[in-house]
Design a protein around this nucleic acid. Structure first.
Lengths: 191, 191
DNA sequence: TCACTCATGTAATTGGTTACATGATTAG
DNA sequence: CTAATCATGTAACCAATTACATGAGTGA
């Protein structure tokens, strides 16, 4: 019922929106992306692609190159593109893992989908969560609780870095989008 | 077999190492931590606590306050502390989600466990992954692929921010730890 | 009275990992 | 001849979410 979660299906669909790929390609691509978002196992990738195919969201073409094992290259269909857009329109659920955001950024590569909304959503989320975190970090703590203090500190540092980057990215994308709800006023939490 | 993953059991055990808590407390605490690490559902928390209890890693005490529903407060045992330390000694698997790191930081709150190792590990990991990411980000891309460019950009920004923070945190903790393998030489990737 | 917070739990289902099976090609 | 990369898949298992069930107290 919760189709705005980070299911691998939409994840893969987002990648296929960029270009046709095989399951193995997807794995390789994600390995190259490295630490940023994890690499799902083949035991997850292949069934996911079968599912997308069954749903009619992708087509499959068997490509055989001489002296190589045959590859199954999947391409997104119109229906798939519509499904992807529908999914992207849903808000990211609060407290989704960080990779959810990155994946949606990647997926918004297809034309007519501007990533600005995605960026704005992330920004709102961080601004919403920031005060609690900073309050927690400020409240006194025993020296024993060094790990806790570090974790909160780390969270704050990340949040600040993200906000800085998001503002810059939004400013960059605002130039090419007409519906610029940019509000360049300095937010209290940004600094 | 892979017990260095982020299973909720160790996650909860790490929180109980800080102070005794009930399942509901754990949920509330994580909610307050907000976006940084997600909030597991009760359907996961309670069974996890039962498991820890069965393993002898925690003890349970039924605390009844007048006019309130009774709470089950769990406290970590010596065996639990040993298990936790054992788990923390294992390296974080490559490409574990970001929250794995935060959770281990939190868990290293118990005394005689310095979080420096945890920080160093994270730093090593990022330094290892950084070159691939930055190379990918540099290579030419069509304008259609704005999402991809943004995602890579975002990853790089985060990595930089993390490294900056990690260096600062390591420097701070180095003062109080004797085994300071700090290597204050400026790494190429730090800037 | 209705909704919300406090507080704990179980059962069905989903979505993943691990391990296994297959098989060709290339590099040491 | 062995190991590694390319390439796809299935089955057993596990850890989580969702939905459900219960029940008392509090505030509108």
């Amino acid at each position: 019922m919760d189709r705005n979660a980070v299911g691998l299906r939409h994840y893969a669909l987002g990648l296929l929106a960029r270009q046709p790929m095989s399951g193995y390609d997807i794995s390789r691509f994600l390995k190259s992306l490295g630490w940023l978002i994890g690499v799902p196992s083949f035991g997850a990738i292949y069934p996911a692609l079968h599912d997308l195919h069954r749903k009619g969201w992708v087509t499959m073409e068997l490509v055989t190159v001489a002296d190589k094992p045959p590859r199954k290259v999947y391409s997104i269909t119109e229906a798939g593109r519509r499904a992807l857009q529908e999914w992207l329109a849903l808000p990211i659920p609060e407290s989704a893992p960080l990779k959810a955001f990155v994946i949606r950024l990647l997926a918004s590569s297809c034309p007519e989908l501007e990533p600005a909304a995605c960026l704005q959503q992330r920004k709102d989320e961080i601004i919403r969560q920031y005060p609690m975190l900073s309050e927690l970090a400020r409240e006194p703590r025993e020296a024993t609780d060094l790990g806790m203090q570090l974790a909160l500190d780390y969270g704050l540092a990340l949040a600040k870095a993200e906000l800085t980057w998001l503002n810059a990215a939004l400013a960059r994308t605002a130039c090419r989008s007409s519906s610029g709800a940019c509000t360049p006023g300095g937010d209290a939490s940004t600094r």
